[in-house]
């Protein structure tokens, strides 16, 4: 299968290792990986702030980049939700409506892609650490992905998963984190407390945007717990 990667702007800039891990995993599984050369933002910041015209202007480019893709694997549940759930709404009634509707079913968040589309759970990875998992809200509630990352982690040798007591937002929320920094920070602190209660070494997620927020707080508070994207674990042996 030819898999088109969608590497969101912030992953490209700050978390290239997530994309690299995805490429390595997919190639190891014998798939052909392609990725548009051009940069790409899904348009979610403008969309979530209410500026849909501006969002469409960015998103049109994505539609164009991915129009010939067979399937699209996405490095973030949040961008995945944008493309799969919100593009059809964003482009409803526009000349791109058909393209948006055609793209949506081809889009998969990466862990969901491995489990649901490829039927793979064991990648032969080993990660000898105690971890906890953070469900990014968009992946969890827009894309309904809960089991896929856990099934993948269950097959990782020597990985111990300890769940947090509550499933709660990390407080990032895109522009929300800048518009309401105090609330966003409080939510992040709650999240970190829940993670600390598990005594995990790592907070794992399938969404780099949540991890950016959590890691930003951890760094400032000089806390030892670390964040890591699921793809980076699955590539280790």
């Amino acid at each position: 299968m030819t898999v088109t990667l969608f590497i969101p702007c912030f992953v490209d800039l700050c978390y290239p290792q997530v994309g690299v891990s995805m490429v390595r995993i997919l190639e190891k599984l014998g798939h052909k990986v392609v990725c548009p050369d051009e940069p790409a933002c899904c348009g979610q910041p403008a969309f979530n702030t209410g500026y849909w015209d501006e969002s469409r202007a960015v998103a049109e480019k994505v539609l164009d980049q991915l129009k010939d893709a067979e399937v699209v694997a996405i490095a973030s549940g949040s961008c995945g939700a944008m493309m799969k759930v919100f593009y059809p709404e964003l482009f409803a009634g526009s000349k791109h409506e058909a393209a948006a509707k055609a793209l949506a079913p081809k889009c998969y968040e990466f862990s969901d892609f491995l489990v649901s589309k490829l039927g793979v759970t064991d990648l032969g990875a080993r990660f000898p650490h105690k971890v906890t998992f953070h469900d990014g809200c968009h992946g969890l509630r827009e894309l309904h992905i809960k089991d896929a990352p856990r099934r993948l982690m269950a097959q990782v040798r020597d990985l111990e998963l300890v769940e947090m007591k509550e499933t709660v937002c990390c407080g990032f929320g895109g522009t929300f984190s800048a518009k309401f920094p105090a609330i966003s920070t409080a939510m992040g602190d709650v999240k970190i407390s829940l993670a600390e209660e598990t005594h995990a070494e790592y907070i794992v997620s399938n969404d780099s945007s949540c991890l950016m927020h959590i890691q930003g707080l951890l760094d400032r508070q000089r806390k030892p717990i670390k964040t890591i994207h699921l793809a980076e674990i699955l590539v280790q042996s």
């Binding site: 590497i7 978390y15 290239p16 920094p181 707080l217 400032r220």
Partner: peptide, 13 residues
């Protein structure tokens, strides 16, 4: 309240 993530030495692209 938070640190910014460092820009990678080499971006994915």
């Amino acid at each position: 309240t938070r640190e910014l993530p460092p820009v990678a030495k080499q971006t994915f692209k």
